[in-house]
Nucleic acid binder design. Sequence first.
DNA 1: CCCTCGATCTCGGAT
DNA 2: ATCCGAGGTCGAGGG
Lengths: 250, 250
Amino acid sequence: MSVTTLHRPAHRDALTHLDDAFQRGDLVTVFGRCTVEYDGRASSSLGPGDRLLLLKPDGSALVHTDEGRTPVNWQPPGCDHFASVRDGRLRVRSVRRSPEELLDVRFERVHHLAAYDVTDPDELDLQGSEADLKEHILATPSRIEPGFEPLATERETDAGPMDIFGEDDAGRPVVVELKRRRVGPDAVGQLRRYVDALEREFGSGREIRGVLVAPSVTDRAKSLLDEEGLEFVALDPTTGRPPADATDAG
Amino acid sequence: MSVTTLHRPAHRDALTHLDDAFQRGDLVTVFGRCTVEYDGRASSSLGPGDRLLLLKPDGSALVHTDEGRTPVNWQPPGCDHFASVRDGRLRVRSVRRSPEELLDVRFERVHHLAAYDVTDPDELDLQGSEADLKEHILATPSRIEPGFEPLATERETDAGPMDIFGEDDAGRPVVVELKRRRVGPDAVGQLRRYVDALEREFGSGREIRGVLVAPSVTDRAKSLLDEEGLEFVALDPTTGRPPADATDAG
DNA sequence: CCCTCGATCTCGGAT
DNA sequence: ATCCGAGGTCGAGGG
């Protein structure tokens, strides 16, 4: 049976059902009036209300309200779920070690409980990531500029690995930092750290170029690039070509 | 009735139930064997498998598998959900404008459908945020250093608003950047941008101090701070005091 | 484990 | 609408 449910169960019956579902490795949903306490990296408290609790066999827990993509409370994968009945309430605790974190959901009333036998053989295939943009550039390096030659990807520096390291038609070293979407000041700082690291590594005489590649750039980020002597090239992550609205400066 | 459900419904019945639930403003879950297509900021494809679809009355949609805190596919709040039956399959589309995004879930088989009447009056009360750390410091500025005097919070600069602006016992301007958790290189770049902006603003003669406040720092971030002539103070966001394991350098 | 960074990040606040 | 930064971010990949 791929789905089993209980409507308005007594807490004892909900507990039995829940423990059986955990045993089977089902994904469980519990809907009811509850309070939620969290303590760990931060701590939070949520008064009584109707919410949907999802408990996954991988140890994740999600508390969803009627609003928001983000759960109001949660526990990441790897936790242990424990159900019990205390003070006439169904209580679900989800415990994490390292960092020590506890999620405690207490149901004053369970409206509905469902256990789903989930089997998902397929892996998500996603297009338009930064990795795709990198592939486009390696396939057609001239999109950066004529004569640009990639020499390495993920090349290590004291500031961490660069997205692409290469050289221009004059043989000057070039650091390329890729972003799949419009960039702000943080991306400029990241590029700057790589360029600084290479300047230390190559010695003070050598000029290192830094190129930020993204579909577009904010005004503040553009100013920062200019101040730092860094460059910008507008490319779309899905096509690897300049975006439709791209001027030279993006 | 706060919960209505259908077990292994015919697609037509599922559709009717779904439309009624949308009308009522219920939170809906659909569990079944489905494929998922997404196209928007990126695009993705997911072959047949059993998944749980959550549709919220605020327009969010979440596709959850048996693993992960993060949904395998989703749509943020503000979307419009449309259900239909095409080619003998239940199809749920969730559409967003600006950016234009589409989530398309096609059920070959619906194992279970539930509609929940969610009412949640309570707001989450969270402790241990960066805002709490700020309050601690404003209450006891000497935690930064003896003689430190806060003058403003969120004070504007060309690089955006600083967390805390103040001066030390010698009257030197101090930029304080707060983080609730262990900091890496990005936070150093952020602090640096504020210090640079103030140096331009105050003129070249004036020395501006920059202090990063967090429970701890990574090695690389510490090196960057040292190179830039910036400082670090170890404080815990929940207590406002030095963490138990804090040495001077954190 | 920790570090670093990408993400359809999400979310909120300010302009 | 865009910009900017916080987040219990999550998650992956590498050391």
